[in-house]
Amino acid sequence: MEQIDFVTVEEQQRPRKRNGTTSAAAARTTKKVARQGAAREGYRRLTADIPADLHKRLKMQALMEDRSVTELIVQAAESFLRNRD
């Protein structure tokens, strides 16, 4: 079975760091940028280990709906909690 890597256009266009260093000129011209991997303002980062097949199904569904996996998970969590009340 062929492995498929899911990479967004933004990730493909993002310049890669070499050896974790940046040039002095780039450091001077860079405005305040969120740390890579940091949650957006008003959000919290959540890490969960899920079965590989479930992850694959989520990625495929997100692609078919032109949405992010995050959007699918947030919608599912909101629905779950709404039904618990």
Rank of each mutant, 00 (worst) to 15 (best):
L63S: 11
P15Y: 01
V74E: 13
D85Q: 11
L54K: 10
F80P: 02
T8S: 15
N19M: 10
R45C: 03
Q75M: 08
A24H: 03
I50T: 06
R44L: 08
E2M: 09
T30R: 15
T47S: 13
A62F: 02
I73S: 03
I4Q: 13
F6E: 07
I73Q: 01
R35I: 04
Q75D: 15
A26D: 11
S23I: 01
V33L: 13
M1T: 09
T70Y: 00
A39E: 09
A26G: 03
D5Y: 06
A24I: 05
L54N: 01
V7P: 05
T21K: 15
A52Q: 13
R18V: 13
R35Y: 00
F80T: 07
L54M: 13
P51E: 15
E41L: 09
L81H: 10
H55E: 10
D5M: 08
L63Q: 11
T70Q: 06
N19E: 15
L63G: 09
A77G: 04
T30L: 09
A62H: 00
A39K: 06
M64R: 15
P15H: 05
M1Q: 04
R16P: 02
M60I: 15
E2F: 03
D85M: 12
R67N: 02
E10P: 00
Q3D: 11
G20W: 05
Y43F: 10
Q12E: 12
V33I: 12
R35P: 08
A39P: 14
L81P: 04
N19I: 01
S23N: 06
G37S: 01
R35A: 14
R28F: 11
S79K: 13
Q12F: 07
A39I: 04
A62C: 06
R14E: 11
K32V: 08
L54E: 11
T22P: 01
A38R: 06
A48L: 14
A24G: 02
D85W: 07
K59I: 03
R35T: 08
P51D: 15
T29S: 13
D49W: 04
S23W: 06
K56L: 12
R35V: 08
R14M: 10
L63D: 06
R67W: 01
T29Y: 12
K31T: 13
E65T: 02
A76W: 05
A48W: 03
R40D: 15
Q13T: 07
A76Q: 07
D49H: 08
P51Q: 08
Q36S: 12
Q3I: 11
P15W: 01
